[in-house]
Computed example of a mutant assay.
Amino acid sequence: MTTVKTVIYTSAIVLTALICISCKDGTKKVAAVPMGNEMHHEDRNDMGNPANNDARDSRTTAILDGYLSIKNALVADNTDEAAEAGGKLVAALDNFDVSAYSSSEQTQLKDIIVDAKEQAEHISESPMEHQREHLKTLSTDVTDMVAIIGTDKKLYEQFCPMYENGSTWLSASNEVKNPYYGSKMVDCGKIQQEIN
């Protein structure tokens, strides 16, 4: 019994040390693992069919493209483009098939998709300040989704300390362009982590 306690205690110390060491750097490079569905879902029926993998990848790309279009429109202070992109993102989320994922991932993805659709719908119907408010939650949803489904795009999670006590967004560029303030403070923010 004492040996078991010693092993557990030692393992806990080693794990804590590894976590502390890995979190030491303030700007983390994170690989959203797995980056491709084929690495994660080897037991799925469509693994041998590249057409099915391509279809999944295109639906994932449509979601990221829709999100990034909203973000870019808000950087440019363009309400109409953000609204149009919000509508496209709703359609992309509707077309996303969660069946290729594990049951726990399906549950998480369904919850994320419901919330992300609500945010995108508000963005498609609202004035700019309201669009920016919904981008904050949408950014969290899309980041959580990417952590599960992966992406072949290099993304940067960026952070503005001033908007609503701190807000993040995803960008395909390492250049900080703030969607929460647009032209008022377009350079306000920093890269928090690199994904992929």
Rank of each mutant, 00 (worst) to 15 (best):
M1L: 13
T3C: 10
T3L: 14
V4D: 13
V4Y: 14
T6Q: 15
T6F: 15
T10R: 04
S11K: 11
A12T: 14
L15K: 07
T16Y: 11
K24M: 15
K24A: 14
G26E: 15
T27H: 13
K28L: 09
K28M: 12
V30E: 14
E38W: 12
E38I: 12
E38H: 13
H40V: 06
H41K: 05
D43M: 03
D46S: 11
P50Y: 10
N52C: 09
N52S: 12
T60E: 08
T60H: 02
A62T: 11
A62I: 05
I63P: 00
D65K: 01
L68T: 02
V75Q: 00
N78R: 02
N78C: 00
T79M: 02
D80Y: 02
E81G: 01
A82K: 00
A85D: 00
G86R: 00
G86M: 01
G87Q: 03
L89N: 02
L89V: 10
V90C: 06
A92S: 12
D94A: 11
N95D: 15
N95Q: 12
N95V: 09
V98H: 10
V98K: 13
S102I: 06
S103M: 11
S103P: 03
E105G: 03
E105L: 02
Q106W: 09
I112A: 05
I112K: 07
V114N: 15
A116L: 06
K117A: 05
Q119M: 14
Q119R: 13
A120C: 13
M128I: 08
H130Q: 07
R132V: 10
H134A: 08
L135S: 02
L135V: 02
L138D: 08
S139H: 05
V142P: 00
T143Y: 02
V146W: 01
A147P: 08
I148W: 09
I148G: 05
D152L: 11
D152W: 12
K153R: 15
K153A: 11
L155M: 13
F159L: 12
M162I: 14
E164D: 15
T168C: 05
S171E: 02
S173D: 13
S173W: 04
N178F: 10
Y180L: 12
G182L: 08
S183N: 13
K184G: 09
V186T: 08
D187W: 06
G189L: 06
G189N: 05
K190D: 11
Q192K: 13
Q193I: 09
E194R: 07
E194H: 08
I195D: 04
